[in-house]
Simulated scan of single mutants.
Amino acid sequence: MRVLGRLLILSLALLLAVPAGALTLVLVLVLDPAAQAWLAGGALAGLDATLSDLAAGMAPETMLLALAGLAQALSVLLVAPPVLVALVGETLRLRALAWYAGAAGLLTAALPWLARGAVRPGGAERLAAEGHLSAILFLTGATAGLVYWLVAGRSAAQPPRGAPGA
């Protein structure tokens, strides 16, 4: 019975943690001036490319596939780190806030670097921009980890009620 209860709490915590991380990402991208410039430049370039591709006769289905790819990348970025950290934390019965927030933040920030597999050539400006993006992603993952810890992580190692030492 305890396992079912933990699974329910784990699911609820993840159901709350993932949107909290997504909300943090959106807020930081909207409020941070450097992220605004990066987002506006990327959005305008993407809109320009989309409109020129549509004018050239590209099928709208191709655009839907590109949007599906973006949605998949965002789900990997926002869902995978808190789920992985939660599973490891629950398996090892960890209760530390540092584990849930820190590990989720580090994993989220590291995902683009791990996916790329190598350092991109470029100067200090590119490295600073990528470091800034990594800090934004760390904050996103840390927020998701914090929400998970608040809901389920604090009680991960507690013995069942009525057990000796409870």
Score class of each variant (00 low, 15 high):
residue 46 G to N: 06
residue 33 P to S: 10
residue 66 A to Q: 12
residue 59 A to F: 06
residue 59 A to M: 11
residue 33 P to K: 11
residue 49 A to K: 07
residue 30 V to R: 09
residue 57 G to S: 05
residue 55 A to Q: 09
residue 41 G to M: 05
residue 68 A to D: 12
residue 41 G to F: 02
residue 49 A to E: 04
residue 38 W to L: 15
residue 54 L to K: 01
residue 67 L to I: 01
residue 32 D to M: 09
residue 31 L to S: 12
residue 52 S to M: 10
residue 73 A to N: 11
residue 48 D to R: 14
residue 56 A to P: 01
residue 31 L to G: 02
residue 53 D to C: 00
residue 50 T to Y: 08
residue 51 L to W: 07
residue 32 D to V: 06
residue 41 G to K: 03
residue 61 E to P: 04
residue 51 L to I: 10
residue 69 G to I: 04
residue 33 P to Y: 08
residue 64 L to M: 11
residue 63 M to N: 05
residue 35 A to N: 10
residue 51 L to R: 11
residue 70 L to Q: 13
residue 30 V to C: 01
residue 38 W to Y: 15
residue 60 P to S: 13
residue 36 Q to E: 13
residue 52 S to T: 13
residue 41 G to I: 04
residue 53 D to K: 02
residue 73 A to K: 11
residue 38 W to I: 14
residue 61 E to A: 15
residue 39 L to F: 15
residue 37 A to G: 08
residue 65 L to H: 06
residue 70 L to I: 13
residue 53 D to A: 15
residue 54 L to E: 04
residue 67 L to V: 01
residue 51 L to Q: 06
residue 63 M to S: 11
residue 39 L to G: 08
residue 51 L to F: 09
residue 50 T to E: 05
residue 33 P to F: 08
residue 30 V to H: 07
residue 58 M to R: 15
residue 64 L to T: 06
residue 72 Q to D: 10
residue 44 L to P: 02
residue 42 G to E: 02
residue 38 W to H: 15
residue 64 L to S: 02
residue 73 A to V: 13
residue 63 M to F: 12
residue 48 D to L: 11
residue 42 G to C: 03
residue 35 A to V: 06
residue 54 L to P: 03
residue 48 D to Q: 12
residue 61 E to C: 04
residue 44 L to C: 03
residue 67 L to H: 04
residue 72 Q to W: 12
residue 69 G to D: 08
residue 66 A to W: 05
residue 57 G to M: 03
residue 65 L to C: 00
residue 44 L to K: 13
residue 61 E to W: 10
residue 48 D to M: 06
residue 72 Q to C: 10
residue 34 A to P: 00
residue 68 A to H: 06
residue 70 L to Y: 04
residue 30 V to P: 00
residue 58 M to G: 02
residue 57 G to L: 06
residue 73 A to D: 07
residue 72 Q to E: 14
residue 49 A to Q: 08
residue 37 A to D: 09
residue 53 D to H: 10
residue 56 A to H: 01
residue 55 A to N: 02
residue 68 A to K: 09
residue 45 A to V: 04
residue 56 A to V: 02
residue 31 L to W: 05
residue 62 T to C: 00
residue 37 A to V: 11
residue 49 A to G: 05
residue 50 T to D: 03
residue 30 V to G: 03
residue 40 A to M: 14
residue 71 A to E: 02
residue 44 L to F: 09
residue 68 A to P: 02
